[in-house]
Amino acid sequence: MGEWILQVKNLHTYFRGATVVKAVRGIDLEIAAGETLGIVGESGSGKSVMAQAMMRLVQSPGGIEKGEILLDGEDLAKLPEARMRAIRGNKIAMIFQEPMTSLNPVIRVGDQIAEVVRLHRGYSKRQALDFAIEMLRKVRIADPERRAREYPHELSGGMRQRVMIAMGLACNPKLIVADEPTTALDVTIQAQILKLMVDMQAETGTAMLLITHDLGVVAETAQRVAVMYAGQVVEYAGVEELFADPLHPYTQGLMASVPQIDQPRPESRMLPAIPGAVPSLDALPVGCAFQDRCPHVFDKCRVSEPLLKLHRDGHSARCWLHD
């Protein structure tokens, strides 16, 4: 792809408490306009921290340690806070995992959407509310005039996630960061929300960073995938390429019990368990972070850390087996 709208270069995000937790350790990513990049990885692999770092929202004692986040060539990591605020919710928006708790319980749904365009577009109260109703209609909520006046507790989980999507797309952002947007929903609702997101994306041309546990979701929506393990990208490839020929033993492990994309999926599509656990991020071993769980581990893996290396067109992996 030619024009990247977002490039992440060597991003590190640490939490400096009693120990230093290296949640994100040198991530490189890029996203083209209108594209969906999937991020998969087990719990604790640093997906959410990376997403928050891209919006500069990691709260103390955490913070971006080094690296660049280039949005249209502008490095967000170095931007003054006031300039960064003008970008949040405007050029980059975020959709969170828990629709039940992501909306403020004491503010009307319409006002919560309106707030974004009042802030970034300078709309009047009236204009902003009309706009919010329009957005609710776009995310296919029935009777949007009435819903806009309701409070979050009057809406179902699926509807609330639609509201979150409306809120995220309000300013027509260049990039949407969706952190497990369907994980908390029923399976049938999941499919509806996912379809809505894909449709909205096609309509607006927004790029999307889609974080998920669910390889099925990635297969359906993403063009490219980054597999994360212990704060790093261990494999990075086009979606078909990755499913056809996973290079990293971790990716292979993730896919082992997942059926082919064209076969009907079983009930649970969550990542299958790989024996062992993610190493503690404040005391990583020397060498490869996956060494203790890897079925193909050999001497070199315990001595030095492999780099993310390009193997063929657009397919890279971080593994000594493919050196």
Partner: peptide, 21 residues
């Protein structure tokens, strides 16, 4: 709470996040 994170992600100032949300 999540809605405070959401409020920050909207680009609101810390003051607005604290008082309004």
């Amino acid at each position: 709470q999540d809605y405070v994170k959401v409020a920050r992600a909207k680009g609101l100032t810390e003051g607005a996040v604290l008082v309004r949300h």
